[in-house]
Amino acid sequence: MDGSIISSILFATIVAGTPLIIVALGQLIAEKSGVLNLGAEGMMAMGAIAGFAVTLHSGNPWLGVLAGMAAGIAMSFIFAVVVLTLMANQVASGLALSILGVGLSAFIGKPYESEILPTVETIRIPLLADLPIIGGPLFNQQALVYFSWALFAGIAWFLYRSRPGLILRAVGESPSSAHSIGYHAINIRYMATLFGGAMAGVGGAFLSVFYTPLWVEGMVSGRGWIAIALVVFATWRPFRVLVGAYLFGGVMVAQLFVQGSGLEINIPSQFLSALPYLATIVVLVIISRDQNTVRLNAPVSLGQPFRPEA
């Protein structure tokens, strides 16, 4: 295999992993505050159609990303009101949000189905991009790829080095204890949930504006669910989210490569298509077997409503 093939596989892997990283890191923040939002799939779908439509009309992909973000925030705001203010069950509400988002995006997207957006140019980092093999994949990438790295670094710093991050983790472990020492647990959960929604929207917009610049109903195709699973199997740790996302992207690209290569293999294509999901889950289950890590990192109050005493 020559360098250019490795380079292009690496490039595709990183691009495929990027929306997962953005969405999963957003969900990680929400979950660290104790809110389990299963609506990621729906929020991504809404982000994707909003991003696509605005980019098409304005011609500016960055406005599209902002629109995707706004759509994600709006969706998560509905969710937050339902589960944080009205104390509804988080699992059921999240499932409903997913179904709502997927359906609504299909409805809004009907007129856009035949449209195609121009490809957005990558951003080339001088000198570094000229490195052999890794130069292209790492340093001549879509802007949102760089954003996902910054997001990772920012979130790792936020969670483990900053005071607001400490407060967030405290709320996720025990909102009642946090309340009793004077923190407004509900407000903190609101902000974390909206952040999760914003990132899901950006992840969705990345799909429809940068990754495959067109709109097809159901184009999110389970990535929202994978992002949620990633967070759990990564035991709520940002670095493992990164690893899991690229693993998923890598197997996704590899199976496409195998399917498209015309090699004579007797494996059903459906199995190959399922492989990225399978491989990601198997690997993450193996690395998350350590009970200690799980107990130290899992937000104890995940999914539990909190109502301060009157």
Binding site: L166, R169, A170, E173, S174, S176, S177, A178, S180, I181, R295, L296, N297, V300
Partner: peptide, 11 residues
Amino acid sequence: VFQHFSLFETL
């Protein structure tokens, strides 16, 4: 000082 402590175990 609460009877059931308000400490965070993972911190």
